[in-house]
Nucleic acid binder design. Structure first.
Lengths: 350, 350
DNA sequence: CTGAAAGCGCTTACAG
DNA sequence: CTGAAAGCGCTTACAG
């Protein structure tokens, strides 16, 4: 279906504009515009004729012109603190949001915002106001940066946040029920017969860490297992913290038969420390994590954990974002899933 | 330094335009434009006056208008196959490119291109041609997708590639010397006293895998260590492949005292398999990897590996990209660095 | 259901 | 060193 025309230079052939399409289809540019934007007031015949010409000329609307004229672009911003860090949680959010963007004809523009930055308002201004972003997605820990949110709201940009702490008016939130998820994992360990269950808590500044802690407490309380201070360590979500916490737990006189870490990084740290004490997993010790990080199914043994439905969360978030204003929307809490793998089993004494 | 003016509504205050600045500074918009774009033909006095007004009005040029008028945007595209996959190599490239973008006043737009996609040309057309990207960065395996590169070149967009296979005219390449790096690691192991050195080769379709293999071969040849087929396994860069290869190597009657895996994922697989055979690291077995993945310094023991200077590569790539055309540029090969950590030591018999 | 015209906020020859 | 004007390629009231 190529259209060689006359031997135009192969370098940068001038792309077709809306005028070219209009002329060839014998309609006004207004009509072409309507077709592009899927507006209703075009007869089916006209629409298909225009569409044919669009194909023929392989016309693509100039996003810059579109944005300039309409004062809104087809670009969505993803703001992160440090995309490469962590166990890929942010990377997976990005991937999922990107998928939605491509599906809906948007582009993803990634920006790095340092929470410690003094003039975030400035940065946001330069970024958003002048690019007319259709919306922005905030990931932790940016989800809970009041200056950022205020600056964004001042520009009128729709906002969606992943796993925020506290609700903020006019901002869409997506999350899972962290308390319930932690409860489910703990309950599962109890169901296997464990009674001595260590817990590695995340940093208490994080709402999710607090919620997971609460879920753990609730589950053991329900099973009449006494809460023991020494069974509950705290770590900052890193591998190293998990290793240290693991050492403390595993050197206890009455060491736990199972350890539930608040994220996979810490769980893998526990697993590493268990090697030091010659414990076999899962026969001597069960370990469970949280996140279903990329490496969780690539460890030995593979890690029992909890998966957030990131793709679904991204989809919900994205749709809420671009249809912002259509209807008020409450916090979106999506279902999590416990993934049982080889790192957990019945306790040795059971 | 706030300027309340009259009580304008807090929601979406109309941003200042180039006209507002020109008027207030008593110059034409042309002059303002020159100041913004750092063009020379403005007197220092005028420039500073304009700059002051820009601050005062917190004026930021509208990127959309700028792009439309100049036919080039301040957006750089990062094309990936699957950003979230792998051991964070792509994520780190993204982070580094992003840092450069923010430093130079560009924005980063991430796109996912599936190498298997039939009409890449179409996608590129819609993407690049209509957004007037200032340039695009290609990451493996997209670095070696002829259709993509041709489509991109047809739009006249400058291209820079990370770790490509073969050179292509008018395309900027950044890489390290993989052969030399693998040679260095092998040499280091030999220097520790190892003579039985297993090697886990990456997939031979990858140029870097071939180069690393060559480096290994060269180093052992130089040390008069015979090349043994059974000491050389092949894996597809995944943890699992490393584990399987590790099993083969560790069950050999004359098993290696050191194993060098072509990437960190496979190295961690080897470490996992060594647990099965009750080998202590590094006393019984040394393991080295390649990449310095995020988890490499968070394993137990921490992994000896080779680090690519991704930040430097990104900087070189980015600058070459935005100054494209100024001068022809050859492939950029940056220095790697061997990171010695706890996973390697003298062989047990030494 | 469709047209003609103004305007979005810049850059860029062209003059001076 | 600076101005006035055209134009980038769209969208959007306003008419019809």
């Amino acid at each position: 279906m190529r259209d060689p025309l006359n031997g135009s230079p192969p370098e940068a052939p001038k792309p077709a504009t809306i005028y070219d399409v209009a002329e060839r289809a014998n309609v006004s540019i207004k009509t072409v515009s309507k077709v592009i934007n899927n507006l209703p007031e075009v007869s089916r015949l006209t629409r298909s004729r225009v569409q044919a010409v669009i194909e023929e000329l392989s016309y693509r609307p100039n996003q810059l012109a579109r944005g300039l004229a309409s004062q809104r672009s087809f670009m969505v911003g993803l703001f992160c603190d440090a995309p490469a860090a962590g166990s890929g949680y942010i990377a997976r959010i990005q991937m999922a949001i990107l998928t939605m963007c491509q599906k809906e004809g948007y582009h993803l523009i990634v920006e790095c915002i340092h929470a410690t930055n003094q003039n975030i308002a400035q940065q946001v201004h330069a970024l958003v106001a002048q690019s007319k972003l259709a919306g922005v997605v905030l990931t932790p820990p940016l989800s809970d940066l009041p200056t950022l949110i205020d600056a964004l709201k001042a520009t009128g940009t729709p906002i969606v946040r992943f796993s925020p702490e506290a609700a903020v008016p006019d901002v869409i939130d997506v999350d899972i029920d962290n308390c319930q998820a932690a409860y489910d994992i703990t309950k599962y360990l109890i169901g296997l017969g464990h009674r001595r269950i260590g817990f590695i808590r995340g940093p208490l500044e994080h709402a999710d860490a607090r919620a997971r802690y609460e879920g753990y407490c609730r589950a053991i309380a329900e099973a009449d297992i006494p809460f023991l201070d020494e069974y509950c360590q705290t770590g900052n979500y890193t591998y190293r913290a998990g290793m240290l916490a693991g050492e403390k737990l595993l050197t206890l006189k009455d060491r736990p038969t199972a350890i539930f870490a608040s994220n996979d990084d810490m769980a893998s740290g526990v697993m590493a420390s268990s090697i030091r004490y010659n414990l076999r997993l899962p026969q001597d010790l069960s370990v469970a994590g949280f996140d279903d990080a990329i490496f969780a199914h690539a460890m030995y043994p593979r890690l029992t954990t909890c998966r957030q439905p990131i793709a679904d969360m991204a989809e919900a978030a994205f749709l809420a974002l671009i249809h912002h204003g259509d209807k008020p929307i409450g916090p979106l809490t999506l279902p999590h899933k416990i993934i049982v793998r080889g790192s957990t089993a019945r306790p040795p004494t059971a």
